[in-house]
Design a protein around this nucleic acid. Structure first.
Lengths: 226, 226
DNA sequence: AGGCTGTTGACAATCCTGTGACAAATCCAG
DNA sequence: CTGGATTTGTCACAGGATTGTCAACAGCCT
């Protein structure tokens, strides 16, 4: 069974989190402060960490940084009070995978933890440069080129493309795509997804009306094949 | 949020159960008698049912049997007075997953309900690729192939196929299939099921008029064998 | 303001599904 | 065994749901 480490000093929140995760089939390990958290992290080998940024003693940020330096792929979801200035740059800097502001809905927290674990468990390492027919896709530089000539993709288009490459052969529902690429906050209509697929087809497929790579799976979503 | 259907005529017990489950993070639907229970069961799509065996009107046993015939995997936990002769054979016969005798401790009931839900949610592990004669069925990619050539299945057809594979050797009634594949909301006619079986036979059987895998069990439903 | 991006809504095209009708098979009572 | 009743197999079709596509709009950054 997958184990989740909860680092949190507030007893009431501890209890609520424990109940939430246990009732959803996870093991839970509780740590009351930062140093205890680091100890448990080493001893318990959790699959994910839920970390309150406001901790007595060793600061939450430090704990996060430390965990991430030792296990870069272990997902860490951060809790923060809504009054805190949650700076995305800070979160990025300390290596958090996601964050939730208190008060949070249990469902949302659970969804985020699950999502981060799913991302982390994807061992499929995608090469830096992915070659699709005569198009080369540089996933880190966010550049595409076809026969020496660059192909322009917008940021969003690129995110969608990358997600499809990372999940090639798997049927992706519009909902999953919205969750994973757009994030939980934004929820544009599903029509948006279709349009992005349309643009990717127009830019990447030889014959956009008979796509070879971006297949539609009627009633389910889309699938990238190669 | 997971919903629990409580079928119980005693107001006091209703209240206690509702409090118990709600305070532990579940949704609760109350039905006061058997026929109401069956109605709620169809409408509310609960994750578990707590059922008092002593009901006015339609007997509790009948309700349990009925629920189980429609959704064999839905956990049903039975309440019975301690003076009742609780026969384990009877419970088995009507399909109950567990039982608790009154007076019961809330903690124990909760634990049993949770346990039965956990058991039920454990998905029958099916290999990712299922091989049926010369057809390979990739259950995650939603792809079928026969001798290198792909076989096209619609989403609905695929869902039906997956359900049969997951329940191989078991006789599936049309009603159960409608519940499990189509969902509680939609209720197309049972003729629909026959047509989907027909299509699966045409696509997957060597001789569709003499099916080797999708057997019909006259008067009961269908059975997938392999 | 002006250009670029992302999103939305409308409409058409396409695909899928449920339904009913009839034929075939099966069951059952006599 | 036999005939009628019930259940199932099979087909074609219409309506509905899903998707492709386009144009226009809103938001943002410069």
């Amino acid at each position: 069974m997958e184990k989740i480490l909860v680092v949190e000093d507030d007893r009431a929140v501890q209890k609520a989190l424990k109940r939430l995760f246990v009732s959803n089939g996870y093991d839970v390990e509780i740590a009351h402060n930062g140093s205890e958290g680091l100890g448990s992290f080493a001893a318990a080998a959790p699959s994910a960490v839920v970390l309150d940024l406001r901790l007595p003693g060793l600061q939450g940020q430090e704990v996060c940084r430390e965990i991430k330096s030792r296990s870069p792929n272990l997902p860490v979801v951060v809790l923060s009070a809504s009054t805190d200035v949650v700076d995305k740059v800070l979160l990025l800097e300390i290596g958090a995978d996601d964050y939730v502001t208190k008060p949070f809905s249990p469902k949302e927290l659970l969804a985020r933890v699950k999502a981060s674990m799913r991302r982390a468990s994807r061992p499929f390492t995608v090469p830096e440069i992915y070659v699709l027919d005569d198009i080369s896709i540089n996933l880190t530089k966010m550049e595409l080129a076809q026969g020496g000539k660059p192909i322009a993709l917008t940021t969003q288009e690129f995110k969608v493309l990358r997600f499809f490459i990372q999940n090639k052969d798997r049927v992706i529902s519009r909902e999953e795509l919205l969750n994973e690429v757009w994030g939980y906050r934004n929820y544009p209509s599903t029509r948006t997804v279709d349009n992005h697929i349309l643009r990717l087809r127009q830019k990447l497929e030889k014959d956009p009306s008979h796509p070879l790579h971006f297949k539609t799976v009627h009633g389910s979503g889309y699938k990238f094949v190669h």
